[in-house]
Design a protein around this nucleic acid. Sequence first.
DNA 1: AACTGCAACAACCGCCTTAGT
DNA 2: CACTAAGGCGGTTGTTGCAGT
Length: 222
Amino acid sequence: MGRSPCCEKAHTNKGAWTKEEDERLVSYIQAHGEGCWRTLPKAAGLLRCGKSCRLRWINYLRPDLKRGNFTVEEDELIIELHSLLGNKWSLIAGRLPGRTDNEIKNYWNTHMRRKLLSRGIDPSTHRPTNDLAVDSMSTSFGAVSKEEKIAGVPTCKHQENPYEGKCQELNLDLKICPPFQHQSEPLKSRGREDLCFYCSLGLQNSKGCSCSGGDSGFARHE
DNA sequence: AACTGCAACAACCGCCTTAGT
DNA sequence: CACTAAGGCGGTTGTTGCAGT
């Protein structure tokens, strides 16, 4: 019944990765590419689940990872992106070169939540915490309910939400907007200086848009 | 020095989406 | 169109290290 397991759990290691395992994985991927994660562990001589290999590679072994502390600029960008996208960590990570969704998620749950709370802002809704009583029934802003997912049309439930305008304009159909290509360069040196934050998210017509070229940016990419 | 509580983060689990047949 | 396998994502848990008592 149900789905078959993603791998033979009886013959796989679990828990922390050893240096040996890391080296095996890295050398295999460098030689053969990522390919099929299901068959990779066996081919690389690893007693690991394919998912585990993928996670390890994406989150810790990829050569383009930045690691280290988050900068103030990254902090603010994460807050801004989270206010618009909610817990869409992979989308947020796509806007932060060298950072992974898992890293950002952990960082958010440890540092950022506290930071926002200390500012008197609810980390889930991005609204002042003393507003919570007004709208205690609301779900997290940016989060899409199951029903909304099924309908395919995220709706704004927050009549007085300061982000309501953004929400209506927010084009979450981000598949037409490729992620950053120049991941090794910092934000301001990517040749996108002409794009404001909203344009970079595909919100060319947003009220918050401050850049000159309304039709420039990702909207042209197809 | 031993204990406890907490923060940080690595890793796993289960569900959903997508591609292939 | 239906089904299946694999990939991907987000939530959650487990482990480790550190600070405070």
